[in-house]
Simulated scan of single mutants.
Amino acid sequence: MSKMRTRLAGAVAIAAISTLALSACGMNSENSASGGEEFQPEGDVKMIVPFAAGGGSDIAGRATAAGLEEASGVNISVENQEGGSGAVGYSNFLAQNGNAEYLLASETALLALPLTQKVEFDYTSFTPIMKLGDDYTLLVVKEDSPYKTCSDLVNASKNERVVAAISGATGLDNIVFTLMEEKAGAKFDRVPFESGSEATTGLLGGKVDVISVNPGEITGQLEAGTVKPLCAAAEERYKYDSLKDIPTAKEQGIDVSFAQFRGVIAPGGISDEAKQYWIDAAKKFADSDAYTKYIEDNMMQPNVSYGDDFAAYLKSNNEDLKTVLGK
């Protein structure tokens, strides 16, 4: 690149050098497949988690940041930017357009927010890097709750007030409760929280009757016996030993299942080299013991995709979500 700038400096006025040099960089980015200059972060990279610490998104973001850091050799710090059911973090991330030294731990809110709120972005505003896998939810109540199954919960909600915690208005848990209302005639009052961990605290404190959480967010409480699962909002039972005895909602006559994806995205407008750099690091992470541990510790389905394949998944899932949300 320094030689190109030298040639340009000899051919044009000093005032034009910056513009032409930037153009040359852009051409290098577009032609990375034919041997252009490779991308390398110049400093530390920041991973934004658009939800509060302690929840599933935070767990995913920190695991992914550590995995990509190991794979790339670049320092990656994590910053929680909660608020607006994820809208604050995503909106701040939008402002980093073209800056490949930022990443974001993404999930279904990427699709749900533009369908339910007035925001300046949709999934096409960003660069998909890696889909880590799929995360279904468990419907969980306190250990001393009178409800023993999701059928009990649905039937009770038709005649009495049942309060459900949701981690943001656009989260997977709210989608699950909405589907239960549409398909089973349930009726829930909702109390919003900023993360699954806060929702769990609300359940244990008696502020709500039921929560819908990812298994990785509730494993400790399940093992301690302070909560009990009513059903899994999944297509089939989990294979993990600690969850395999939990029936699906469908087994109880409630045909509801919806997966939340976990992934990582980069800002829009980054170079092809930068996109490929992070995809290569993501593939290395997916082949590591750290990735396997994350998936197994959080009891997820390891359905991985990268780049354009991840983008195709987002397009398809967005159409599905439009149907669910009646958009």
Rank of each mutant, 00 (worst) to 15 (best):
G206D: 08
V163W: 04
L172W: 07
E198S: 14
K187V: 10
Q96N: 09
P114H: 02
S197W: 02
G133Q: 06
A112T: 14
S157Y: 02
F121Y: 15
D173A: 15
T200F: 11
T178F: 00
P114C: 11
T201V: 09
G196K: 04
K118R: 12
T124H: 13
L113C: 10
D135C: 11
F193N: 07
K183G: 08
V210W: 03
Y102A: 14
K142N: 15
I211G: 03
L153K: 04
F188H: 12
G185Y: 02
I166D: 04
V191W: 03
G202E: 06
A184R: 13
P192T: 01
L204S: 04
P114N: 03
E107F: 15
I129G: 00
F188R: 12
E194D: 14
S157W: 05
A165T: 03
I211D: 02
L104G: 06
T124V: 10
D209W: 05
L132W: 02
D122Y: 00
D134V: 04
R190V: 12
A112F: 03
F126C: 13
L203S: 06
D152R: 04
P128S: 12
K183D: 06
L113F: 05
D173F: 07
Y147A: 06
V154I: 14
E143K: 14
P192R: 05
F121T: 02
E101G: 00
M130R: 04
V140L: 12
F188T: 13
V141E: 10
T127Q: 09
S151D: 13
M180T: 01
I129K: 02
A165R: 05
N159W: 00
E181N: 12
T127N: 11
K207L: 11
V119L: 10
E181W: 11
A186S: 06
V141S: 07
F126K: 09
K187S: 15
A112S: 15
S151V: 05
R190S: 12
T127C: 09
L110K: 04
S125I: 08
G185I: 03
E101C: 01
N97S: 15
L103P: 05
I211W: 01
R190G: 04
I129C: 05
G98M: 10
D173H: 06
K158P: 04
G185C: 05
G185T: 02
S195N: 10
V163H: 00
S197V: 09
S157C: 10
C150A: 14
T200I: 15
L115D: 03
G171E: 09
L115V: 12
T170Q: 13
V208C: 09
S145Y: 01
T108F: 09
T124W: 08
L115M: 15
A109H: 12
F188S: 12
K131G: 08
T116Y: 00
E101D: 08
S167W: 00
N159I: 10
T200W: 02
K142G: 08
N159L: 07
D173P: 06
K131M: 15
M130H: 11
L139W: 01
P146T: 10
S195Y: 01
A169P: 06
F193D: 03
A169V: 13
A156F: 02
N174S: 14
V154C: 06
N155G: 06
A100Y: 00
S145P: 02
Y147T: 06
Y136G: 04
E101H: 00
N99F: 08
V191A: 11
E194Y: 02
E198Q: 14
G98V: 13
F121V: 10
L115H: 06
G196P: 07
T170G: 14
T170Y: 10
L139Q: 12
S197H: 12
D134S: 11
